[in-house]
Amino acid sequence: MESVKRIVRISIPLILICIVSGATLTVSNDMTKGRIEEVEERKINGSLSIVFPGASFNKMDDYYSAMINGEEMGYAFVAEGSGYSGTIKTMVGMYQNGTISRIHVISQLETPGLGTQIAEPDFTNQFSGKRIEDIRLRRDGGLIDSITGATISSRAITEIVRTRAEEVMNETR
């Protein structure tokens, strides 16, 4: 009997704390949920208008079709894959003929200062106007210059973009 009493005495405060904690967190989750979704959505929408400025977008299965003045210009899609130290997620805009309009890195976890340069315009601008088959590093027979000291990250993003672009090309054909 004594031990049961002891267990109750010990566990009730702990259980109470857990209940209060759960309740508080549920409230904070409800308070922030809308905003977090909005933030995530804005990331996608923001990058859509970067890869096809001035276009409106219709969501298809797993890509967006970009319309300018009611005419389909091309496709925008998210390409995702593993980079040097984590997942690289990038938005790609591609014209119907398979030329890249622009790419925009949404998130990456590459080495700060080296691999992170894949997200900077100096690197991403190289993709604009290139055909799918040229989206390879120069040393792999393509037209993309890799970043000094970050070949792996450069190759990773190039491969991610090309693979996904080929998939979308096949889907839309």
Binding site: S21, G22, L25, T26, S28, N29
Partner: peptide, 8 residues
């Protein structure tokens, strides 16, 4: 749907 409880 209580992913936010993961840290706890």
């Amino acid at each position: 749907e209580i992913k936010f409880m993961r840290t706890v």
